[in-house]
């Protein structure tokens, strides 16, 4: 059965490779998008304007998965082993790296509509920095901030606001495009609601990623 399956999949992909041509219709929608949205980064325009409806579902996928991982893990034992072997130089550098990643997060989410970047990238950058700090220096110290800054409440609030703003943009597209075209092309404040959405998505993604990875780290050694 397995052998037949392998032959089948090989033939499927051979047929696919032989049958398509990539030089079909090449669309150039960039002019139209930049004209109406009036921000330089066309990917952000597509992500948060023309296909905002997809993005709402994407945010929901992320929130559901984070909570689902937490709820599925609830019955499994937590690893209480607290001693962590650390290495001096790495500890020093990872602290600096975490600070750097916070700065990079702010830059990427605020300038997401002008330079490469955006909410999702920013959130991942921040989560990577903090998780690296937790793994190399002290996981306990790194996980204190989650309760201290009330990230869970912040996450819920940003989910609500993202949903509200997206609904507004979808229901009243004309108002938002007037807001966008009033500003000067390429400045930080030219994005209308886009930078706000980027910041909120960044927070949301950071909270979800941190939650998932800390659940995995808390159950280390079980697999």
């Amino acid at each position: 059965m397995k052998i037949a399956g392998i032959i089948a999949v090989t033939m499927i992909f051979v047929i696919v490779m032989l049958s398509f041509d990539s030089s079909g219709n090449i669309p150039r929608p960039i002019e139209q998008i930049v004209d109406r949205v009036n921000v330089p980064n066309a990917v952000t325009s597509v992500y948060l304007e023309t296909r905002l409806y997809d993005t709402i579902f994407e945010i929901i996928v992320f929130s559901i998965t984070a909570l689902g991982v937490a709820s599925l893990f609830a019955s499994l034992p937590v690893n209480r082993d607290e001693d962590q072997h650390v290495f001096g130089t790495v500890t020093v550098y990872s602290g600096g790296l975490a600070a750097l990643s916070i700065t990079l997060f702010l830059y990427v989410v605020i300038n997401g509509h002008i330079t490469p970047g955006g909410g999702f990238v920013g959130g991942v950058v921040l989560a990577t920095g903090v998780i690296t700090y937790g793994l190399t220096s002290s996981f306990k110290k790194a996980s204190v901030h989650y309760d201290k800054l009330k990230i869970e409440i912040l996450e819920n609030i940003s989910l609500m606001i993202i949903f509200a703003f997206s609904t507004l943009i979808i229901l009243f597209p004309e108002t938002h495009s007037q807001l966008l075209s009033a500003a000067s092309f390429g400045s930080t404040f030219s994005g209308g609601l886009i930078p706000i959405l980027n910041i909120l998505i960044g927070i949301k993604v950071y909270a979800g990623a941190w939650k998932m990875s800390s659940e995995f780290i808390n159950r280390r050694g079980t697999l």
Binding site: D54, S71, L72, A74, S75
Partner: peptide, 23 residues
């Protein structure tokens, strides 16, 4: 078509979590 992909994946992810809800 792409929106259908995203929503079908979301529906599947929800059903994965729901199937193993009792763990």
């Amino acid at each position: 078509l792409f929106n259908i992909f995203v929503t079908v994946e979301l529906a599947s992810i929800i059903s994965f979590i729901l199937i193993s809800y009792e763990k």
